[in-house]
Design a protein around this nucleic acid. Structure first.
Lengths: 202, 202
DNA sequence: AATCTAGTTCGATAATTATCTAATTAGATA
DNA sequence: TATCTAATTAGATAATTATCGAACTAGATT
């Protein structure tokens, strides 16, 4: 339900983000119209109007009724008003950020150990929590790139003064590899399995 | 104000018709965020996030506050709620069809003489009203195309049984020209001046 | 049955929009 | 002053979306 909300809302906004479709909606809100009428009024060909109307219909914004081989389209207010109600509430808007973080997941741990500006409050003492924070950190490095040790340090200092510890932890946890002073990030597959909660990055 | 409404609404829907921007809005609705945070959270580069944020800011959906050279973005509910209120009312949606018809204009005349299905109730007796209806009709013909007399008749029969009268009126009013049984539409410029109300076609 | 009409679906092209890297600006810090 | 950092702007390319003509479907008309 939570994730579906954003996707559905996005579909609505995409449907409405086009001048022709807004006009079509306005026209059918006044009275029923045939495809020919609508195409002429909006200034597009019939196939194009048909295409837009199909889109609006998929979302339940308009209805269609056939009489002979003329199709009459009409406005259905319900879907739009549901949308209006969601964006009217701040709580509704907050949901747009994405799926709410499941309790106890790696992301919740990271949230607890980071300041609003994205820096680390502490390096977690518990192995599991430290692992989650390290995973979050290492994901901010590029995958197929080689880093010098000063580069890694500079990167880590943006999060915490003790870059040496963090750098060492990366190696211990097989999140990064080192050879002749050059570091690179290892693929998630190499280490994700050892932690319980698989998670997608975004 | 009337025409501006649709354009503004369209701009809002376009702004919201993108997954990254919806997420950005959701994030800033939770608390202030810097561009770096937002870019990381949404999974785009900083310039891209900046670009999206500028778009949202142009529409008054978010605000920006500088602290040092960090920019903090926050959600501004007003614009969204105004939008929600408009699409919540059917009257608000009707306006999307385009500029409201000014009273006494040619379009109001046409509305009075047409049935819901687009056919003509009558051919207006008064010269001015007849003129308005004819103009509406002739605009539904293609501009740079030649029609045979049967084609014109077929077209007119979709609106009224008396195609012969309508066809003759087109010629009288210099809306169409005829030569050797071939008809074609004349440019608006050739005849619009004789009527009072200039109007854009759409 | 053959034809006509309104609408839809398909496939290719055109137009728009998003995205990145590179360059630039402005504030903070050494 | 020189350098660093966060953000923005510019310019080029990639991805998405709109649009049309052509082909097709189904209902109505001859």
């Amino acid at each position: 339900m939570t994730e579906d909300t954003t996707a559905r809302l996005l579909a609505f906004f995409k449907a409405l983000a086009h001048e022709s479709r807004l006009k079509l909606l306005g026209l059918v809100a006044q009275r029923e119209h045939s495809v020919q009428e609508l195409a002429a009024a909006v200034g597009v060909t019939e196939p194009t109007a048909s295409h837009h109307l199909a889109m609006l219909r998929d979302l339940g914004l308009v209805s269609r009724r056939a009489d002979g081989n003329t199709h009459w389209y009409a406005f259905v207010p319900d879907a739009l008003s549901a949308l209006a109600k969601q964006i009217l509430s701040v709580e509704g808007v907050k949901k747009l950020a994405g799926p709410a973080r499941p309790r106890g997941s790696a992301e919740a741990v990271v949230a607890n150990f980071t300041n609003p500006d994205g820096t680390l409050k502490d390096i977690p003492a518990s192995r599991k929590k430290r692992y989650a924070v390290l995973a979050w950190l290492v994901r901010q490095l590029e995958e197929d790139r080689r880093y010098t040790e000063p580069e890694i340090n500079a990167f880590l200092k943006r999060f915490h003064w003790d870059s040496a510890t963090l750098r060492r932890e990366f190696i211990i946890n097989r999140m990064m590899a080192r050879e002749k002073g050059v570091y690179w990030r290892l693929s998630d597959f190499d280490w994700l399995s050892s932690d319980g909660s698989a998670q997608t990055s975004y």
